[in-house]
């Protein structure tokens, strides 16, 4: 019980208020369909030429027996091509269960994780969603790192994803 608290405090101190931050919000929309399954979602960063830089999250069915849920990871076509096929799933800090309808936040800063080693430059945040017996959608949000000022980028999905918003703070 105590450890997570201490760890939480520790990381709070490790990330001073001056750290450059990235807040991402991803909406999984409510869909009017007869058979609904939660989508598989991959979120990653890419550099120029769509070069894969870092995975931020992969939400898939990781509770199925015999890792049967991994059978459908290739439906996240671009993520599978750029990253997934080279990974041994699950990956700590990236893998997670599929999410229900709602809006989900991801917080990152330059004190830890992939942003710690991210070189200055132009990037794109990519969100790809694929749904069983449903469709697939891929959205990109361009941004520059590190941010020079507060900045908000957003894009609206059309059928598998809702609003994706990226907030950057220097």
């Amino acid at each position: 019980m105590r450890k997570p608290l201490l760890y939480g405090l520790g990381s709070l101190f490790a990330a001073p208020a001056l750290a450059a931050e990235m807040s991402l919000s991803v909406e999984i929309p409510r869909l009017d369909v007869a058979e609904y399954h939660r989508p598989y979602v991959a979120i990653w960063l890419e550099g120029s030429g769509q070069q894969h830089v870092a995975d931020l999250a992969v939400w898939y069915d990781l509770k199925l027996a015999d890792a049967e849920g991994e059978k459908w990871l290739k439906d996240l076509r671009q993520w599978w091509r750029r990253s997934g096929r080279n990974l041994q799933m699950p990956v700590d800090g990236i893998s997670g269960a599929t999410r229900a309808v709602g809006t989900y936040a991801l917080q990152l800063n330059d004190q830890q994780g992939p942003l710690k080693t991210l070189a200055a430059g132009d990037y794109q945040l990519v969100v790809e969603a694929a749904r069983e017996v449903g469709g697939r959608e891929l959205l990109r949000l361009p941004f520059s790192w590190p941010p020079q000022q507060n900045r908000t980028e957003s894009v609206q999905g059309q059928h598998e994803l809702g609003a994706i918003t990226l907030e950057l703070k220097p």
């Binding site: 059978k71 990871l73 290739k74």
Partner: peptide
């Protein structure tokens, strides 16, 4: 049936 596959021993 497929040319790109994921998962164990598909």
């Amino acid at each position: 049936s497929a040319t790109v596959l994921s998962g164990d021993e598909p």
